[in-house]
């Protein structure tokens, strides 16, 4: 596959390491009352869509940026790629 890196352009997927669902960015609050259940769901419950899926790829042999790649699981078509740090900030992650 080819991943169109937002900064470096099209790169071979061989340069990347796959992690999984981009929902891993939405890490629950450790201090919530329901933290144990929240973390259980966060870590073990995943959607497995036959279609568009946001997922995390690490450009290990490139610029070491984590990317959020939107890929169709049935065709491998990639419709969007962005820096995970931008995506994470948009999802409210900070410090």
């Amino acid at each position: 596959m080819i991943i169109n890196h937002p900064l470096l352009g099209p790169r071979d997927a061989q340069e990347f390491v796959y992690l999984g669902d981009a929902s891993l960015i939405d890490r629950p609050d450790v201090n919530a009352e329901t933290a144990l259940e929240d973390f259980h769901d966060y870590l073990y419950l995943r959607d497995n869509p036959a279609g568009s899926h946001k997922e995390l790829w690490f450009h290990e042999q490139g610029d070491r940026a984590w990317l959020v790649v939107t890929r169709d699981m049935t065709t491998h078509e990639i419709t969007d790629v962005e820096l995970a740090s931008d995506y994470a900030k948009r999802r409210g992650r900070d410090r």
Partner: peptide
């Protein structure tokens, strides 16, 4: 200038 793989080496 860019990083790339040469025979498995970054």
């Amino acid at each position: 200038a860019t990083r790339c793989l040469i025979e498995h080496l970054g």
